[in-house]
Amino acid sequence: METFMIILSGILFTIATYLILNKNFLRIVLGITLFSHATHMMLMAINGLKRGAAPLLGEHADAYTDPIPQALILTSIVISFALTALLLVLGYRTYIELGTDNMKKLRGESHE
């Protein structure tokens, strides 16, 4: 299962990289979202999926699942959610002000 998830996140990384290298702003946002999804999936898989009982003392099990990766993913999801929202607002405002969503046209001119 871990191997499968790692391969899956690898595919997601590939797609995300392709999207980020696009010139269209919305595709870049989608790429960034996929990039963080792939990261979270990899974080989960790389540290081992369900290895034992829930990490509670009352369970009296031989092995417990490590809760830390899940805590990290939760934190990271919240942050990337906020950043995506901010990026979309910023992108919308940029589109209104500058009239383009093409990153190549956002280079700026020397005479400003």
Partner: peptide, 24 residues
């Protein structure tokens, strides 16, 4: 607006790489 777009995108990608490095 123009510069903050680039700044935000670069830094989000760098932060995601930070998470990846920490996962490793």
């Amino acid at each position: 607006l123009r510069e903050s777009m680039k700044y935000v995108i670069i830094n989000i990608i760098a932060s995601t790489l930070f998470v990846i490095a920490t996962a490793y």
